[in-house]
């Protein structure tokens, strides 16, 4: 369109072209196939989401033995659930308990347990979140809508090449007789990063 903002369009299309150039060159050399690329995009955009992580959390809420194994060796325990992870790094699950709230960050880049939580949200990759949540976690969480009681200890976990973290949120009150599948519906992505709590059962469908 002739009246589109020219600088913006130019800047945008330069990255687009570069990404396209790399994709076509690697594909023509037979190093990757278009089918493999399409499959991965579909998987992450449509299938995974935070669903795998939510199932892990719901199982831990219902099964104390699983919970203990999950906290002891999450990579192995998740294996019991038939959720195959992208093998970027082993997972460590940190539990929210009375008196303790956990939150996850990757200060250096944006390591994230994508096999459990899908593609990371934009704010997780943002320089402001990555630097500030370490220095002033309460304030950042409050700005994100999560006000924590002053007596709670806040633990910040910095992901790395060797380890990724996921938060096991506490099971809310008011869902004592719910089954695992229904409980999984309470578990949001942000509650497993630690920037929110699970949905309120009385407001969930």
């Amino acid at each position: 369109m002739p009246d589109e903002k020219p600088e913006h369009h130019h800047e945008h299309s330069e990255h687009e072209l570069r990404a396209e150039a790399l994709e076509t060159l690697l594909t023509e050399k037979g190093l990757v196939t278009a089918d493999a690329i399409d499959g991965i995009i579909r998987l992450f955009e449509e299938d995974i989401g935070p669903m795998n992580g939510a199932k892990v959390v719901a199982r831990a809420w219902c099964d104390d033995g699983f919970r203990a194994r999950l906290l002891d060796d999450a990579t192995a325990a998740i294996g019991e659930l038939d959720v195959t992870m992208l093998p970027e790094a082993p997972i460590v699950v940190v539990p929210n308990e009375p008196g303790v709230h956990n939150v996850v960050v990757c200060t250096l880049c944006s390591c994230y347990p994508s096999g459990l939580l899908g593609i990371s949200p934009k704010w997780y990759k943002d320089p402001a979140y990555r630097s500030r949540v370490v220095r002033e976690p309460r304030r950042v969480l409050s700005e994100m809508g999560l006000d924590l009681a002053p007596e709670l200890e806040v633990r910040v976990w910095d992901s790395s090449a060797e380890l990724r973290y996921m938060v096991l949120p506490a099971r809310p009150e008011g869902c004592e007789d719910w089954d695992e599948a229904r409980l999984a519906g309470l578990v949001t992505r942000d509650s497993m990063i630690g920037t929110a709590l699970p949905r309120d059962p009385s407001e969930a469908t």
Partner: peptide, 22 residues
């Protein structure tokens, strides 16, 4: 390395339901 999904019609929200495109 292919993550398999346990239950594609489960109750957990798909990524778009978090209110943003991935």
């Amino acid at each position: 390395q292919v993550p398999r999904v346990l239950d594609e019609t489960g109750p957990a929200a798909p990524p778009r339901a978090n209110g943003e495109l991935v």
